[in-house]
Amino acid sequence: MTTTYNDRATEIDKRVGALFKATPSVMTSYSQLVKAASADGALDSKTKELMAFAISIAIRCEDCIVFHLRAALKHGASQEEVIEAISVAVEMGGGPSVVYGGRALKALEDLA
């Protein structure tokens, strides 16, 4: 049975929820950091999520790719913007980012 990226996103949510229950003080503090870093400022939230998405590809964190792609889409990122972010990740990450960029493109197909 093939796991879809939607299924994967659900699993990520479950694991993060379990971590919040296991260590609420640490995860609450981390959540505040995430909210502050991703809030609209000189850069809007969509741009920040696209940046996090590209970094996720370059560092080869597949769950991070799914998490930040989903967030970028929720903030209104278009398919074209996501593909450009993949291109930047490939520029910065080289060959391994090509492989993870392909995974990110498949995730876009599943999550969009």
Results as ranks from 00 to 15, higher is better:
H68F: 01
A85N: 06
A22S: 11
I83Y: 09
A36Y: 12
I59P: 03
E81F: 08
S97N: 09
A58G: 09
G76L: 05
I59A: 02
V88W: 08
A77Y: 05
N6S: 13
A54Y: 02
K21Y: 06
A39R: 11
F67P: 01
V26I: 10
E80A: 15
I86N: 07
G94N: 10
S56L: 02
C64T: 04
G102A: 14
G101V: 05
A9C: 01
M51H: 03
H75F: 01
S87N: 12
G76V: 01
F20K: 15
F67Y: 15
E49S: 13
A72G: 06
K106N: 02
T47P: 03
L19D: 07
A72D: 02
I12K: 12
S25V: 06
Y5Q: 09
V34G: 03
E91D: 05
L111A: 07
T28V: 00
D63Y: 09
A18F: 05
V98Q: 09
M27I: 07
P96S: 11
E91R: 12
C64V: 03
M51V: 04
I59H: 14
R60Y: 03
A112R: 14
A52M: 04
Q79K: 14
Y30S: 07
T3F: 12
L19P: 00
V16F: 12
P24A: 15
K48L: 07
T23A: 15
